[in-house]
Design a protein around this nucleic acid. Sequence first.
DNA 1: ATACTTGCAAACCCTTTGCACGTAG
DNA 2: CTACGTGCAAAGGGTTTGCAAGTAT
Lengths: 140, 140
Amino acid sequence: MNKPFYSSEGDDLLREAGLRITRQRQAIARVLIEAEDHPDAEQVLARAREQDASVSQATAYRTLAALSEKGLIRTHTFDRGVMRFEIGNRPHHDHLIDVDTGEIREFVSAEIEQLQRRVAEELGYEILAHRLEIYCRKSG
Amino acid sequence: MNKPFYSSEGDDLLREAGLRITRQRQAIARVLIEAEDHPDAEQVLARAREQDASVSQATAYRTLAALSEKGLIRTHTFDRGVMRFEIGNRPHHDHLIDVDTGEIREFVSAEIEQLQRRVAEELGYEILAHRLEIYCRKSG
DNA sequence: ATACTTGCAAACCCTTTGCACGTAG
DNA sequence: CTACGTGCAAAGGGTTTGCAAGTAT
């Protein structure tokens, strides 16, 4: 990863959301940008606090909500769990969840997307979004 | 519809789950069997109470949890909402959600299922379950 | 007879919110 | 300067649970 000590990416994210730049939000934004998994609010908060111990739960939730509303992060609710977040400016993908380890792998299938569009079209709808999650176990 | 005044299907469902037959559970089981939508816990409770006013929230949740654990009903959490339930002994299908009306339509696409299997296989997994939800708006 | 079920209400968990203080612009 | 952001702690909404009384088997 080798992140610079200070990255302005987080600031850009916040500005794009029309939010004022504060230390707390900078920490949260950086956590989201650097996350390679799909952290939940609690994890985002814990990681943000490593950078700035003053980040409160309320601010974490409020910032996540604001970014989410502006479409700058995506939210997921895998299985029947808590909300999980990921940065939004990434190519679309679906998720494959290893039920044993909890590991989440991302994938895309142009064919599947294509077929979804056809299904929706046949029923007279246009797709706004979709969610495909495959729950798996390592085979063999 | 034209349901008989008393149907034993519900009892079968309960027996299959290894649960004792009680009036409350019979009401809940019947609600699930007769449901043509995807009711949430609150709706299941309300409908069950039409048959037996003594059904409590606790019993509704406990029965739903028990049936769910035994795989006799399926649970969904469309979008970021409450848990919704549907009877489990029905052919597999995915869901298309009309974001304007909240209407939920079911569909199956053998091709999509096929492609999912291929994706999982390529990553070295076998599919245990999957969930595909398409959020749509009526077109035209 | 006894292990399982019940309703009630309190507890729980995650998330949201009201408030008085703080601060970015 | 002022509108916006903050932490705290309390409130919310959906779901779960401890308990004493009730009931299926």
